[in-house]
Design a protein around this nucleic acid. Sequence first.
DNA 1: GTCTATACGCCGATAGAC
DNA 2: GTCTATCGGCGTATAGAC
Lengths: 199, 199
Amino acid sequence: MDQQKEDTQTKAEAQDEILLAALKLFAEKGYFNTSLTDIADASGIKTTSGIYHHFKNKQMIATALYANIFDSLNVSIDDIRRKNPKPSEQLRGVVDLLFRLTDEAPNVMQLLLVLNINEILPEEKPLLEAPPFVKIIKIFQAAAKNGEIRNMPPQLCFAYFFGIINQTLRMVLTGALDKKADAYHAQTWLTAWNTIAKK
Amino acid sequence: MDQQKEDTQTKAEAQDEILLAALKLFAEKGYFNTSLTDIADASGIKTTSGIYHHFKNKQMIATALYANIFDSLNVSIDDIRRKNPKPSEQLRGVVDLLFRLTDEAPNVMQLLLVLNINEILPEEKPLLEAPPFVKIIKIFQAAAKNGEIRNMPPQLCFAYFFGIINQTLRMVLTGALDKKADAYHAQTWLTAWNTIAKK
DNA sequence: GTCTATACGCCGATAGAC
DNA sequence: GTCTATCGGCGTATAGAC
């Protein structure tokens, strides 16, 4: 491994460049409006052939992108849960994360909130069954159990709470709300929390 | 015109069949996963050629679909505004409409809430600038003026209020919430209303 | 591992008989 | 207005030289 450091780095870098270009283009134009030629042009690679040395086909690029995003979210959420004992604090941590991502990595949030994973990858599980979202549902269950929130199905908690959060962030992403996500952070958290909090 | 009544009726019916088939397929598989062959098969028409006598191209089918949906929503919203003097009642009427549509015309709601009009029709205005949504924003403005809701930007009202409504309906459409929309109607309205109501 | 060249298929779209 | 037949092109994907 060490003796091929140059090569492996280069390979990993090339893959990253492809993924980064794809992420940007998918977020801007959507998956189906983006051709492999577009992706090749936007990364360092000159022709579509080069892409096939890194990914089996176009779908696998999207699969890898979503896997990376889910993994990263998973790590962050685990971290948040470890550092915060109370479910309400954990939820607050997740919201902080999403607002930060919207300002700092809007393309990632675009894939999560705007694009339809099931239209791109019909075989993939629905978004809400992906690991990070399963964990969020668990936070709602824990919050209900310890009495921080009202007693209602966790899916409905999700609908109300993240309905507000996600719609706000979506409108920031599309420009329907004209300030940075951060400008709406405090007020939106409070509003969302109040929809489920035990009054 | 009158003397060709038979023909025009037939023509209109054929167009409707195409639109209906397209609506169903777009809602199920998405616009890009649906070929004109699929649409021809699903309507009475036997080949894709027939479609071109009714629509200039594939995009125009989507354009017509959205135009129909927007028109119909527009009429309904005008009706609601005429019949209900208070903005809060108007909003309630719109919510009733959306919940009813989710149970009775889920394909229509799928196009509105799940599919990305701007990915399908890049030239089209963003959804929130379409006439029905402009009217809803106006309702929020009127509600703010007469003191029924808190004083905040109408776009933010929209984000909170319809964040809850739309996310709930989206989850009904995808099966993440397992009952009919109607089962969540009352509670969801109340929760959404409370996010913007002057307490 | 990256290029050139090219194959292949699907789909959108057209021409023209009936 | 609907069919048969067919085109053209884009976009995915592969083979093979370097």
